[in-house]
Write a protein that binds this DNA or RNA. Structure first.
Length: 310
DNA sequence: TAGCAGGAAAATC
DNA sequence: GATTTTCCTGCT
C-alpha cells in the first residue's frame, strides 16, 4: 500500500490535535502517529500542509480523514470568533491548528466512563485492556493492533472479564451501558439529530429512578456531545477547566460564587447545580463554538502545568 | 442536597 | 515509602 499524501486546510496541527487529551489511544512511533480507527489501523504524519498516511484500509481514506479531523470546520473563522479575551487569544496563538476530533460515539461514550476519577495514563491502559480482551486483532506492519470492542462484545462479556481490564468500580457501568446501546441501534443517530440541550438531557435521563447511562454524569455527557456528536457549543467542566474558570473568569460569576466554590468541602466534585451554572455561562460567553474554546483553554492549562513541573 | 465511597496508578510529599 | 491526586458519578 502506497503512502497517501493529502493536502490539508490551514490551520492544522496534528500533534496538538491528537495530543490535547480529547481522544485516547493515539501512539507515536518515530515520526508517525498510529491508531485503530473503525476497523483499520491508520498511520499518519504531518509534513507542512500535507498529511501523509498509510494503513490497513483498502480504499482511499481521504473522506474518512476529513471527517475524523473535522477538516470541514472553518477553523480560522472559528478561532477569530472565540477570541473574546487575552487568555483565550494567547491559547489560540500558542496552539494554533488544534482541531476537535469527530470520534466514534460508542467508543467516546465508553472511554469517558473509564475516565471518571482517573488519570490519562490509567484511562489509556484500561481502554487498551478492553480492546485486547474483547476487540478484534488487526495486523499492520507485522504488529498486532486491536479494534475497539462492539457494544455486543462487552454486553455479552462476563463481569470478571471487564474487571480484569482494571476498570474497577466502573466495570458494571461499562457493561450496563453496553447493554443499553446494543438494545437501541439508533441511539447515537437519535442523539445526533437532537439539539444540544435535549441530547444532553437524554444522556442523563432517568428511567423509574435510575440513570439509563450509568457512569455518565454532566461532564462526561458534554465530552461525548462535543467529541462525537457535533455539538460544538458543549463546554465540559473538568478539574482543569474549573481551575481556569475560578482563576480567570470571576467577572462572569461574581466574587461570592467564586469564593463559595473555592471554599467547598470536597475539592474534587462539583454539584450538578454549580456545574450547570458554570457550563451555561461559558457557553453564553463563547457562543456557538464554545467547545473549541474549551479545548484550547484545557490544553493550555494542562501544558502550562506540565511545563511548570520541569 | 451535601457528603462520601469507589480501584488503581500517577503525582507529590 | 506514604499520602494525595487523578479529565467524576452514584448513592444515601
Amino acid at each position: 500500500m502506497l503512502i497517501q499524501r493529502i493536502k490539508i486546510p490551514s490551520p492544522f496541527n496534528l500533534g496538538h490535535t491528537v495530543g490535547c487529551g480529547q481522544v485516547f489511544r493515539w501512539r507515536r512511533i518515530n515520526q508517525w502517529w498510529y491508531r485503530v480507527i473503525g476497523d483499520s489501523v491508520v498511520k499518519i504524519r504531518q509534513v507542512g500542509d500535507y498529511l501523509e498516511l498509510n494503513g490497513s484500509y483498502g480504499a482511499d481514506w481521504t473522506h474518512e480523514l476529513w471527517q475524523y479531523f473535522r477538516l470541514d470546520d472553518m477553523l480560522e473563522e472559528i478561532l477569530v470568533d472565540i477570541g473574546r479575551d487575552k487568555l483565550i487569544s494567547d491559547a489560540v496563538r500558542k496552539y494554533d491548528g488544534l482541531r476537535l476530533i469527530r470520534q466514534d460515539p460508542w467508543e467516546c461514550l465508553l472511554s469517558y466512563i473509564c475516565a471518571t476519577n482517573s488519570n490519562i495514563p490509567k484511562i489509556e491502559m484500561t481502554i487498551e485492556n478492553l480492546c485486547k480482551s474483547l476487540g478484534r486483532q488487526v495486523v499492520f506492519e507485522g504488529a498486532v493492533y486491536y479494534t475497539f470492542p462492539t457494544p455486543e462484545a462487552i454486553a455479552d462479556a462476563d463481569i470478571s472479564t471487564i474487571r480484569a481490564c482494571k476498570a474497577g468500580y466502573r466495570s458494571e457501568f461499562i457493561r450496563e451501558t453496553a447493554k443499553v446501546v446494543s438494545r437501541d441501534k439508533f441511539i447515537f443517530k437519535t442523539l445526533y439529530n437532537l439539539p444540544y440541550e435535549e441530547a444532553r438531557k437524554e444522556l442523563l435521563r432517568k428511567f423509574s429512578g435510575h440513570k439509563v447511562f450509568k457512569g455518565i454524569g454532566p461532564k462526561a455527557a458534554d465530552c461525548i456531545l462535543l467529541f462525537s456528536l457535533d455539538k460544538l457549543e458543549a463546554f465540559p467542566i473538568d478539574v482543569w477547566m474549573l481551575k481556569t474558570v475560578l482563576g480567570n473568569y470571576e467577572p462572569l460569576f461574581g466574587r461570592d460564587f467564586i469564593e463559595r466554590l473555592e471554599n467547598r468541602k470536597s475539592k474534587t466534585s462539583l454539584g450538578l447545580r454549580d456545574y450547570s451554572v458554570i457550563s451555561r455561562a461559558m457557553r453564553e460567553y463563547f457562543r456557538r463554538f464554545a467547545g473549541y474554546a474549551q479545548q484550547y483553554l484545557y490544553y493550555s492549562a494542562r501544558r502550562a502545568s506540565i511545563l511548570a513541573q520541569t
